[in-house]
Design a binder for these strands. Sequence first.
DNA 1: CACCCGTGGTA
DNA 2: TTACCAAGGGT
Length: 304
Amino acid sequence: MTARRGPTRHSFKLPGVSLSLREPILNWYAEKARDLPWRRPDATSWGILVSEIMLQQTPVARVLPAWEAWLRRWPTPADLAAEPPGEAVRQWGRLGYPRRALNLHACARRIVAEHGGEVPSRYEELRALPGVGDYTAAAVASFAFGGRHVVLDTNVRRVLARAVQGVRYPARATTAAERRIAESLLPAVDAPRWAVAVMELGALVCTARSPRCADCPIIDRCAWRLAGCPDHDGPPRRGQAYAGTDRQCRGRLLAVLRQAHGPVPKAALDAAWDDPVQRERALDGLVADGLAEVLEDGTYRLPG
DNA sequence: CACCCGTGGTA
DNA sequence: TTACCAAGGGT
């Protein structure tokens, strides 16, 4: 039999391509990694959890100042847990997806109530926290506690899609095949460093739009590259419409509440969006989601 | 599983 | 300018 040696016992489309992805990527990371505050040795597990929640669908550049301000105000879960949820929503500012602020606040209260004020270290415990899904649980367990987990975010998925699967973009949803590939590459030792290194490669070099292949440490073994960089086949990737949507409307309404420091009369909200039907729907949605409150006098405010 | 959930930067 | 995209999660 042909002795195919490598970090994996699985065979991919192009066997051997994944032969040694780890070393060059780890070496590249050692040289090119960004100095992000949540990666510093003095970062707390709480700080790392906060960073992961903030980074959900929000670019690093916008998270940086928000993260600094958040941790300056609430250095520990107990500090945040002592505040009403509305303060978290206000501090969240314009990071987007404000339910994440609510999630972080709920995390803080649960951590205080159920974990003695310390961010739990095990994947399963983390996964049970509000707003902590598969990726975030794996990331915090890895980066804050040194655990060995498959960390599959959009960056890693794209790198593996190209380097191993030979396609420009990963599938819309994570597949079993992807997870198998990621598991096969997971090193026995120093798994967190590997995870952050692949993520960094995806973020800085193997980017979605125009990858900087000239700077890539694995250009000579990238399956997509070796296949001639074939274009994405399959249905076009659905964009996210925004203008005129309920999401935009909710954003406008919440901005009014965030800006005010007390209850807001309904008229102030009415002025923020023209279409009354959509406006009422959005407002009801905000209340249902716990992002806004109606007081008895009919005024609105962030949750107290 | 497809869709919903904010916001801003970039090609 | 429009469209895509950004360390996802919940339903």
